[in-house]
Design a protein around this nucleic acid. Structure first.
Lengths: 338, 338
DNA sequence: GTTAGCACTCTCCTTAGATGAGTGCCAACT
DNA sequence: AGTTGGCACTCATCTAAGGAGAGTGCTAAC
């Protein structure tokens, strides 16, 4: 549907705009990218391409700006090519390896690193935690009928929540309860043991069956409610970009960044099983992202539940960003397996 | 050293600037605040006050802007007065009470609430955690010699970190170790039991004494390294303020907000034992805060270790902000004691 | 010590003209 | 039919100039 030349023009306009930040005119494209065709020819093609929805003009006498349809073409063409790993890969790997104090600290660090390296907002998410193996469940009495529920997942990710049980239990009974649940759940993801535990009669705890059942209900609630964890880092970097000099645009993005839940859902929705996925501007259902692109890559770390991502301007340097994202995702794999 | 009238002028200029955001001129002050004196008189006084360091002029023919010295006077005068509790207090209390899932969730919510209510950045910090009573210490084997250390503090605040022990221990021995340490530490703050545990010989664990000792060292390291926890919320709000239309200023603040450690130290440094403390612009040693004020109030919740705060522009509405901050700090006290 | 008056300064807004990048279209060329 | 050069036209951006307005500093009189 697009001729070879038209495709070249679209890619050139996107590339030129990403590089310079200025709308690209027919003359520029003719001189810098398609020496064989004159500006007038390019001009005619560009008018056609505008009709086809690849470009738009901020005003009549300006050059063309790419629409998300054009970015899509550009990104797809990039994805075909091989990307050389960035030179800093080894350095990053070393730095990440130093963050050994725990998954959360490491992912928080990674999100910041991503932000710094790409001048975008870095995101690191753990998703579908109900699919991660459970390491231990325990309960700590806080006072009254309030109990702290601790769920340790494989790799040392800790979930905790204060819950209310229908009656007061002593710490001994709570320990017993924790042991029994752990015995069943340990080594399996919650989704597998969930049903078993709901019907499981806890030997020796028949007296407090109601309360035990409530505890299981609460575990389920927590793993469903907060089945992902999200880290965002380096929002300051995109403020330097010309694209976000408009305060309103940045405010929109910042509002989204402050909604952990919405962000986590978005990340999960647009990531794919394997490899890099890119969602561009109005391809994203979140209205707030209409001036941004979202680049995501799952990393093999943490039972394949880690997703790294970038949120940046439409005209981000996709090639560089994707290369960096892939490199850091690779570093993370190694670190988390350890 | 300041005459009654000079004081009035300083306070009027600050007040006027806070309300309008425009530099205040002698005529305005004369007409709106000091009807008894003519503009010319005010003008003379203002020139003196400028020499004394209370005002400065953005340019010769503009009105006067308050320096931090003037804001200081204004804030001090406000602190004398009674502040009526905001009408929303009850509503906030109810909303906070709904966040029962844990301390972290509650404080995160409170920081966002603070931000929304005041149009500043809300901050909620837990400080000096080595002074909070320990509820339980336990260890979970993650694989190899990597162990997850879990410290539960009074009220359900969880610290966790992956640590490396010099040799591999079975989960049973780790449980034993956790039990023994808990037995000593439970009910006391770390600072009190720290020394005892360092010299304590753990009965029945003599074989692995080195490893046990290392575990204690790690607990100490964690409670020292991360002896505070910080939540920041609502940064988006200050973007609407005219004071932060200048992207550079906002970027400076955002950079600071993204440095949890530095922020936590600052909060601890400028908060006082009891009551509201206000640090204004260059009174704060952090260069990045030179265009901001920091308002802090300790709340009685969580063993008096909770500090709530606001980061906003120099010309924030101190009276309103402080009233809101105090009200929400009060709400929190009740909620955390429960 | 206080006040009115006045000259002066400096920002901000508006207007107008010049500049330049880029387009759309037409006629001529291959 | 596709391509090209030429040309009129549009529109944002830049600059300069003039006027309005706010506010000051200073002086002389009260």
């Amino acid at each position: 549907m697009l001729t070879e030349r038209q495709l070249e023009i679209v890619l050139s306009v996107v590339y030129e705009y990403i590089q310079t930040g200025e709308p690209a005119g027919s003359r520029t494209i003719s001189k810098k990218y398609l020496r064989g065709s004159s500006a007038a020819t390019i001009r005619n093609e560009m008018a056609d391409l505008e009709d086809m929805g690849y470009f738009y003009q901020p005003h009549t006498s300006a050059g063309r700006l790419p629409t998300s349809k054009a970015y899509r073409l550009y990104v797809d063409s990039i994805m075909q090519r091989d990307r050389p790993a960035p030179a800093e890969t080894e350095k990053w790997k070393r730095e990440i390896r130093e963050q050994r104090q725990g998954i959360d600290i490491m992912l928080s660090y990674v999100s910041q690193l991503l932000g710094k390296a790409t001048n975008c907002v870095g995101v690191a998410a753990l998703s579908a935690l109900e699919e991660v193996e459970i390491q231990r469940v325990s309960f700590v009495r806080l006072g009254g009928s309030t109990v702290l529920l601790l769920i340790v997942l494989e790799g040392g990710l800790v979930h905790n929540a204060n819950i209310q049980l229908p009656c007061e239990l002593s710490q001994d009974i709570l320990d017993e309860l924790g042991r029994k649940i752990s015995a069943v759940a340990c080594g399996h993801p919650w989704s597998q043991v969930r049903d078993a535990l709901f019907t499981y009669v806890l030997d020796g705890l028949e007296r407090v069956w109601d309360t035990c059942r409530e505890a299981v209900v609460q575990i389920d609630a927590i793993l469903n409610r907060r089945s992902s964890r999200l880290f965002v880092g380096g929002a300051r970097h995109i403020l330097s970009l010309p694209d976000f000099q408009d305060i309103g645009k940045f405010q929109t993005v910042l509002s989204l960044l402050e909604q952990e839940q919405a962000l986590a859902e978005m990340v999960e929705r647009y990531s794919i099983k394997q490899g890099v996925s890119v969602a561009i501007g109005d391809e994203i259902s979140e209205e707030m992202m209409k001036d941004c692109s979202l680049v995501l890559v799952p990393s093999a770390g943490y039972g394949r539940r880690t997703i790294l991502g970038l949120i940046g301007p439409l005209r981000m340097d996709y090639e560089k960003s994707i290369a960096i994202l892939e490199a850091i995702a690779g570093d993370l794999d190694d670190s988390l397996i350890n």
